[in-house]
Design a protein around this nucleic acid. Structure first.
Lengths: 156, 156
DNA sequence: GCTTTTCCCATGATATCCCATATATATCCA
DNA sequence: TGGATATATATGGGATATCATGGGAAAAGC
C-alpha cells in the first residue's frame, strides 16, 4: 500500500504541468497504471489524490451495493463522476485541468501534502492556515491514533 | 473490469454522432466486443452505458431472482427490452438513436459521466443539478464507501 | 432513383514525448 | 577532509502524436 509522506512545493508551469514529488512517484511506481486520480475535496478547497489501484478498490466495494440503488447511484456520481484520471509524462509531471486549478485556487505553486494512503494538493498559502488549524485541533481535543487491530481481524 | 472515471462533455454533431471519451474507449477496448450498450435509466432522465460483458454480469445477477417472478420480469423488460448495442466508428464515435436522444433530453452536448463499472449520458445542464443532489445525499445520509467486510458480517 | 449509414481524411487544439539545463544531493578518490 | 565527479530532481521548451470535430465519398438499404 502506498504511503505518502511530507509536504513538497512544486511549480505549475505555463503549460499547466506540475512535477509530482519524487517520493510520491516512488509510491505510485508500484502501480500497474503510471498515473493517479484526483478529485475535489468535500471538506476543504483542495484536491485529493489517490493511486489508481485505490480507486479500483473503491470501485469493487461499490459493487457490493445493489446496482441502480439510490445509495450506489449517489456515491458513484459524486466520487467517480467528479474524479479525474491523470497520467504522468516521462519526467513525472501531470497536467492539472483548469477546473481543478480553479477549485483549489492554485496559481504558480502547488503544495503536495502526504496523508498516508492519499495526498492533498493545496495552494501553499491556504495550506499553512489549514495546518495550523489541524495542529490546534489535535492538541485541544487530545486526538490520538487508535491502537492497531490484529491483522486477521481487520476490515481491509 | 472496466473503470469509468470523470465527466466529459462532447458535442453531438448534425449527423447525430458523439465521440466516446478516449479514456472510456480505452476501458472498452479490453472487451471482446468493440462497442457498448445503452438503455434508459429507470430513475433519471439519462442513459445508462455498459460494456457488453457487464451486461452479461447483470444478466446473471437477474438470475438470482426467481425465474418468472414479477420482479425479474419487470427488471428484464426495462433493462434488456430497451437496450441498444452500438458500435463505434474508426474515430471512436457512436450514433445516438433519436428515441434515446429524446429520452435524455439531449441537444447539442452530451455529458459522459463515469460511474465506475458503468457510465451515464446526461444533458449537461441536468447533470449539474443531479451532481449537487447526489453530493447532498452523500453528506446528509453520511454515505461512505464500505470497508471490505466479508459478505455475511455486514450491518446493512 | 433517393436516403441513410459507414468509412475515410482534414484540421485545430491539446496533450505527450523527448531533450536540454539548472540545482541539489550523493559518491568517490586523492 | 575536501574537492571533483556522478546521480537524481525539478523545470523549460520544441517536436510529435492524439483527440474531438467537421465534411465528403463510398456503400448499403428502401
Amino acid at each position: 500500500m502506498a504511503l505518502f509522506l511530507s509536504t513538497h512545493q512544486n511549480k505549475i508551469d505555463k503549460k499547466g504541468r506540475v512535477s509530482v514529488p519524487a517520493s510520491f512517484r516512488a509510491q505510485l511506481s508500484e502501480e500497474s497504471f503510471q498515473g493517479l486520480v484526483l478529485f475535489r475535496s468535500n471538506v476543504h478547497s483542495c484536491l485529493e489524490g489517490f493511486s489508481f489501484s485505490y480507486m479500483q478498490e473503491i470501485g469493487s466495494r461499490l459493487d457490493d451495493f445493489d446496482l441502480f440503488s439510490a445509495e450506489q447511484d449517489d456515491l458513484a456520481t459524486s466520487i467517480f463522476g467528479t474524479a479525474v484520471q491523470l497520467s504522468m509524462d516521462g519526467d513525472g509531471r501531470i497536467i492539472l485541468p483548469q477546473d481543478l486549478i480553479d477549485f483549489a485556487s492554485l496559481d504558480e505553486k502547488a503544495a503536495f501534502v502526504g496523508m498516508g494512503a492519499k495526498f492533498q494538493i493545496w495552494n501553499p498559502a491556504n495550506f499553512e492556515q489549514r495546518r495550523d488549524v489541524a495542529r490546534q485541533a489535535v492538541q485541544s481535543k487530545g486526538l490520538t491514533i487508535p491502537k492497531g487491530v490484529p491483522k486477521g481481524d481487520r476490515n481491509e
